[in-house]
């Protein structure tokens, strides 16, 4: 292995270490559409940080800007202490990005893909091969090393793609929707890798559309929609804002819908969403106990239920709760 270029560097002092990402007022437009519309971001070092949002919220655009792949129209940012625009080359030396779609050469073998990147980073001769083999082993791809990537499964591609980002251990790793399109087993594998990387000191900034993914992995979550930040906090804080879950009820007699909605709104102090097609109501419940009490109140009022369930809030419901309605809101609602 070649000698690492760490010799002359002073040891890091904890409180002089800048944030991994510090962005102020980032804007990126495509035509008249403002894909990212003035976002501030502070990502501390050494954590998993999630950007949560639906398709088209601007997650990928934001990440591409921070990874030096597209230039902000306005705003400033430093990434790993280097200015994103004026010192992009230095930023590139400390980051790695795994895009939403595997950025691999399908014609080459898995090992050749890694060798290519190792050589571009500056590993020579045997050191490049050794690093490629190490990565293949760590990601459980040694058996497929000499297979062309076009013959890889989705999960194998994803693993190779992440391995390709770790040829040189980055200070900051960008993962754009790392588990979208993967089966549950492959998803678990990727989660485990992400946790292991974070434990080794790599800062990870990931985007996801899945609330549970952000919940499982991230120390801190930013929720964005329409290019704007609509909430930020720990998973616990966001859940507190949203409530622990949603109560869904179905009525035996649709004629009692108004009465039931009014009662639930009053009991739970939250906006009741009405499904347009059937006699169903959804409402944020502060706790299972509050939900149980509300159900008891319905029964006491003589409103018969055909079904009820308690579910974790979906992303739609989180947006509904965080934005207090807006675009995610269904057509009809009853306010407390």
């Amino acid at each position: 292995m070649d000698a690492p270029d760490l010799a002359g560097r002073p040891p890091a002092v904890a409180d002089s270490v800048p944030l991994a990402v510090r962005a102020r007022g980032l804007v990126k437009s495509f035509g008249t559409m403002r894909a990212v519309d003035g976002i501030d971001l502070d990502v501390p070092r050494g954590v998993i940080f999630a950007i949560l949002g639906p398709n088209g919220a601007g997650k990928t655009t934001l990440m591409r800007m921070l990874a030096t792949l597209s230039r902000p129209d306005a705003g400033t940012a430093t990434v790993m202490g280097h200015d994103l625009v004026t010192d992009a080359h230095a930023v590139r030396g400390e980051i790695a990005m795994t895009g939403q779609f595997a950025s691999l050469d399908e014609d080459l073998t898995g090992r050749e893909n890694l060798l290519l990147l190792a050589r571009l980073w500056g590993f020579r001769g045997r050191a490049a091969g050794a690093r490629a083999d190490e990565l293949l082993a760590a990601f459980d791809l040694s058996d497929a090393a000499s297979k062309q990537v076009k013959d890889y499964s989705g999960g194998m591609r994803r693993r190779l793609d992440i391995a390709a980002s770790l040829v040189v251990t980055p200070g900051l790793l960008f993962l754009d929707e790392p588990t979208t399109g993967l089966d549950p087993k492959a998803r678990q594998d990727v989660w485990r890798m992400i946790r292991a990387l974070a434990a080794s000191g790599v800062t990870i900034l990931l985007t996801t559309q899945y609330l549970d993914e952000a919940d499982q992995l991230a120390a801190r979550i930013v929720v964005i929609d329409h290019g704007r930040k609509i909430a930020e906090g720990t998973s616990r804080e966001l859940k507190a804002a949203v409530g622990s879950g949603f109560l869904h009820v179905a009525l035996a007699d649709p004629a009692r819908l108004d009465a039931a909605a009014t009662l639930l709104a009053a009991r739970l102090g939250a906006v009741v969403q009405r499904s347009p097609e059937g006699a169903r109501l959804s409402v944020m419940a502060g706790s299972p106990q509050a939900a149980t009490e509300a159900l008891a109140a319905l029964i006491a009022a003589g409103i018969e239920l055909s079904d009820f369930s308690m579910a974790s809030p979906s992303l739609d419901e989180v947006f509904f709760a965080l934005t207090g309605g807006g675009d995610a809101a269904p057509a009809q609602e009853v306010r407390p």
Binding site: A3, P4, W121, G122
Partner: peptide
């Protein structure tokens, strides 16, 4: 997987 620092830039 050993963490590996960047070799001398080529």
């Amino acid at each position: 997987l050993r963490p590996v620092a960047r070799p001398r830039p080529p």
